[in-house]
Write a protein that binds this DNA or RNA. Structure first.
Length: 414
RNA sequence: GUGAGCGUAGCUCAAUGGUUAGAGCACUGGACUGUGGCUCCAGCGGUUGUGGGUUCGAGUCCCAUCGCUCACCCCA
């Protein structure tokens, strides 16, 4: 084979593409009543948008970005996530001068240079939302409510909603200190990865799946006990509203997010059917990020849904609905084929899906093909019908046949 | 970046180191000349990922390489 797709990217072909269309249109339908409007940002940004936004020491920035110099020597990066670009657009276009809160959603490809595996690709797609200008915990709950609604509409259940609060600039450093102090005493018992995490990002130790570390984790101080009064009240209120909205959730004090910009609320939606990495959606609050981008002190919250992972779940649950042809046109003979060609054009113009072939194959093989295409009707159109000015039809589901006047074809489809 | 597994027909897979690498599905045609699905028959389809090596003989064993998959790190 001469050419092949790049590692970790993939073609989205029919029938899968119909699933994607369904997912995307459901997202639009679900988000609209919550007041979300679409925003489209470029797939490429100046590299600083991500290094500053996501954090210099995160894995994404350190080893996963598609970064290159353009012809003028400026460093550009294919977006590895959606929040930083949307925040950049929000600040650059002064969207904060519009009435708060401003709510946006986006749908599109992201790029990360990673080893592909189940549910992980180098080009993958996210449906994300970002809300600017509201710090009330009711907004956090609302965003989760919208997620719940989306998954319900798209027909995926058995999901776990996990929430946590990782505090703010005030309380997180204090907790971090306490955790480090604790881990320092246990360092010899930690797994090798966790020894590295201890240096780089101690909170990640909480995320470790190794058994030995789990034992240590149980005794470790929890973030929940270190939240400042503001963060504690916010988190308590959020849980209250989630209960009010009857959103089933679990508090997971060990959940740590990989991006630096999160404050207070973080959450993940996971499924046990997704293999090693089970998150199908994740997000959180980022109250300092807009300032970081040179904007006003405006809080934000958002999430992203992994479309590939979601599509895999839906495919498992209920497969794919693919549109089928209404009519398979089998014309026999030069004159009839010519007339059928014309009639098919008229029908298509009216929105009826018509398949006709130019192969001149036997009627039998055309029926076979019509059957394979799952056409609703076969139209038979030969010398006899041509001279009578009619079309013979056969409904494939039950074999019912009849003959209709050529001029009544449109009526036939009512 | 690290580790493991797997590469044979379009797809799913067979083939003790030994004839001309097979089967099912799919595709094309026929039985049925203007009527699909079911059945039967036939046909089409291969550089066994690639390159070396061992051997009288390699799809099979060895080495390298490329690719895919899964897992780790990390992430949607």
């Amino acid at each position: 084979m001469k050419y092949r797709a790049i590692k970790g990217v993939q073609d989205i072909l029919p029938p899968d593409v119909y699933l994607w269309q369904e997912v995307e249109s459901t997202a639009r339908q679900v988000f609209a009543p919550f007041g979300y409007r679409e925003i489209r940002t470029p797939v490429m940004e100046f590299t600083e948008v991500f290094t500053r936004g996501i954090g210099e020491t995160t894995d994404i920035v350190e080893k996963e970005m598609y970064t290159f110099n353009d012809r003028a020597g400026r460093s550009m990066t294919l977006r590895p996530e959606g929040t930083a670009p949307v925040v950049r657009a929000y600040v650059e276009n002064h969207l904060y001068s519009l009435p708060s809160p401003q709510k946006y959603y986006y749908i599109g490809p992201m790029f990360r240079y990673e080893r592909p595996q189940k549910g992980r690709f180098r080009q993958f797609h996210q449906i994300g939302v970002e809300t600017f200008g509201e710090e009330d915990p009711r907004m956090d709950a609302e965003v989760l409510d919208m997620l719940r609604c989306f998954f319900e509409r798209v027909g995926v259940d058995n999901l776990r909603f996990e929430v946590n609060s990782i505090g703010c600039d005030e309380c997180r450093p204090i907790y971090r200190r306490a955790l480090i102090d604790f881990l320092t005493g246990q360092i010899d018992s930690l797994c090798s990865d966790c020894k590295r995490r201890y240096e780089v990002n101690p909170l990640r130790v909480l995320d470790c799946k190794v058994k030995g570390c789990g034992e240590i984790k149980k005794k470790a101080p929890g973030i929940t006990d270190y939240l400042c009064s503001g963060c504690r009240e916010h988190f308590d209120a959020l849980r209250g509203y989630l209960e009010l909205l009857k959103i089933p959730f679990r508090v997971n004090p060990e959940m740590v997010r990989g991006l630096d910009y999160y404050t207070r609320t973080t959450f993940e939606v996971t499924s046990e059917f997704l293999g090693a990495r089970s998150a199908v959606a994740a997000g959180g609050r980022y109250d300092k990020l807009i300032e970081e981008f040179g904007g006003p002190a405006v809080p934000g919250i958002g999430f992203a849904i992994g479309v590939e992972r979601l599509a895999a779940l839906i495919k498992d649950r209920h497969g794919i609905r693919e549109p089928v042809p209404t009519v398979y046109f089998a014309a026999i003979g030069d004159e009839a084929e010519k007339a059928a060609y014309k009639l098919a054009s008229e029908m298509r113009t009216k929105g009826i899906r018509v398949e006709l072939d130019y192969s001149g194959a036997s009627l039998k093989s055309r029926f076979r093909k019509a059957d394979r295409l799952k056409a609703t009707y076969v139209f038979i159109f030969g010398e006899d019908e041509l001279s009578r000015g009619t079309v013979r039809y056969k409904r494939l589901s039950d074999g019912e046949q009849g003959e209709i006047n050529k001029d009544d074809v449109m009526q036939f489809f009512g």
